[in-house]
Design a protein around this nucleic acid. Structure first.
Lengths: 149, 149
DNA sequence: TGTATGGTGGGGAAATGTGGGGAATACTCC
DNA sequence: GGAGTATTCCCCACATTTCCCCACCATACA
């Protein structure tokens, strides 16, 4: 299982390409085959799953019953944004227009490692997100993880 | 098994032809032989099954008890609209009039991948469908998939 | 100071979506 | 039943986008 961490701020070029940090590329399993699935993330960002991690998500959706109304809705909402993208020779992904619009990407992108996926944010959007959260790491950790050792 | 995902908005030309996105064509198994079965979908859209996936759906219907009134009704409703269509040289399907009327297709079509099938929507109809759902993916995922890891 | 690594930018070839013409087929109305 | 009309299918042509490759520059490291 991949374990992505760290952050980097890179440029978004005129063709909508964003580099994946070399450190994170190094963390890829061979099964991932230099291929990612980009999709809409919770909050205003783009999720970037390596091929093998994405398969896990997709399998969950595939097991749903397509004769159930809410299952159909979920499959549509989750999959319509997903797109499979391979790295180019320079280790970049080209971000589809629909996703870059959603995330509000302009000329710079903030890349964040998040365990089993990578996230792409517009730097300003991310700053606002943190500001809006208005909670310091200490308090948040207590609430989420519990206060035990 | 095919794994369709992603979205694309294409034009519906004067002859009622709609292109199938190249990415989705690439996901076809060789068994599908560039042939699809189009039929009326749940909610106001058109289902597009590759040949091999359609066989699976048909088998499900075949296994139903034909002495059951509701089973007979379901079989009729599913099959009466089904039509086998091959791609033309440019990777397009020509949508039968009855189905395009049902889906409310005009000059633009939204194509979305949904695991084992492709769906064709009128962009406005789809927008209304999502708006009517009044539920965000986060909540829905929790309800449908369960909140477990 | 030379070398390897990593990010940035751009040019050209191939692929993809779009529109239309014309032959073959089916359909309808007289 | 036949002529006219509409529809379907197959092919070609064009414009745009995408993809792949190469070159450049900056930084880190030895």
């Amino acid at each position: 299982m991949a374990r992505f961490k760290g952050q980097a701020e890179y440029s978004v070029d005129a063709k909508g390409r964003v580099a994946i940090p070399a450190k994170m590329r190094a963390a890829l399993s061979p099964d991932a085959q230099q291929t990612f699935t980009l999709t809409k993330g919770f909050e205003q960002c783009i999720y970037v799953y390596p091929l093998d991690e994405w398969r896990i998500q997709e399998d969950k959706l595939a097991r749903l019953n397509s004769y159930d109304r809410e299952s159909r809705l979920l499959v549509r909402m989750m999959l319509m944004w997903a797109e499979e993208i391979s790295l180019d020779g320079q280790g970049r992904v080209s971000v589809p227009r629909t996703l870059s619009d959603y995330a509000g990407l302009k000329d710079r992108a903030l890349i964040i490692g998040a365990i089993d996926r990578i996230e792409i944010w517009d730097p300003v959007v991310f700053e606002d997100y943190l500001a809006g959260a208005s909670s310091n790491p200490e308090e948040l950790a207590e609430r989420v993880m519990g206060s035990g050792p």
